[in-house]
């Protein structure tokens, strides 16, 4: 049961408490750029969720198999050139960033081709946003979070498995969608408002984003409370 609680906590945390956009302030460019209409925001959010899940899957696999210290594939390859103890110390962590960007870019490209062929209406509604996701920092951030939970931890037993990583990707994307759709809803109302000239456009959007982030701060501490309640710790 602990495992399910863990997944649950990771999901809630990624979607609401430590929302990528409103807590960590990553992925601000699509958050400002594509939050003009609710339907477009929903399309962007679903595209990001989709790509984020795939990217997290890829990065988890590559990190665990190749990049992390003592990863099976690199140890096996290195074993041909040096002694087994030395081969176990091979550390390719420096490659994480470039390989994550690499895998994100190609998965976006793949998804674009796939969607274009099999779901033309979806492709039309995504339009230019799908290629834009390539440089979406929220996705790289999700990959790096997964990485730090595999490599950075002191205790190897606590390293994340694929299920936890996928939960982070899926619900991180869901959190992004929630944030961008709320923002789009506010901006649609904002269009009807008499905004002072100096604040028009991006300025008022950033201010509203800040207030929204403050509202989301209300979730702070919910995770530790949940944890205490679920595990029954006093």
């Amino acid at each position: 049961m602990d495992y399910i609680f863990d997944i649950f906590l990771i999901s809630i945390s990624a979607a609401l408490i430590n929302n990528f956009v409103l807590y960590y302030f990553v992925g601000i460019c699509p958050f400002i750029g594509v939050s003009r209409r609710v339907d477009m925001a929903l399309g962007m959010g679903s595209a990001v969720t989709f790509v984020m899940t795939i990217a997290v899957f890829l990065s988890w696999t590559i990190t665990t198999l190749v990049l992390m210290p003592g990863a099976p594939v690199s140890r096996w390859v290195a074993g041909h050139f040096m002694s087994a103890e030395k081969a176990a110390g091979i550390d390719l962590t420096i490659l994480t960033y470039i390989i994550y960007i690499f895998s994100i870019a190609s998965s976006v490209q793949f998804v674009e081709m796939y969607v274009r062929k099999f779901y033309p209406p979806l492709y039309k509604s995504f339009g230019v946003f799908l290629p834009l996701i390539t440089t979406n920092c929220a996705i790289l951030f999700a990959c790096l979070t997964v990485m730090s939970n595999i490599i950075g931890g002191e205790n190897p037993i606590e390293a994340w498995d694929l299920g936890r990583a996928l939960a982070l990707g899926l619900f991180g994307g869901a959190g992004f969608t929630i944030a961008i759709v709320i923002m789009a809803g506010i901006r649609e109302e904002l269009d009807l408002c008499d905004i002072p000239a100096p604040f028009k456009g991006a300025a008022i959007t950033l201010i509203v984003g800040g207030i929204l982030a403050m509202a989301f701060m209300g979730f702070n501490g919910v995770d530790s409370g949940l944890k205490a309640a679920l595990t029954g710790a006093p």
């Binding site: 050139f81 081969a87 091979i90």
Partner: peptide
Amino acid sequence: WVTIGLSAGTM
């Protein structure tokens, strides 16, 4: 050299 080779090989 093995690390460099492995990195290049991975990429």
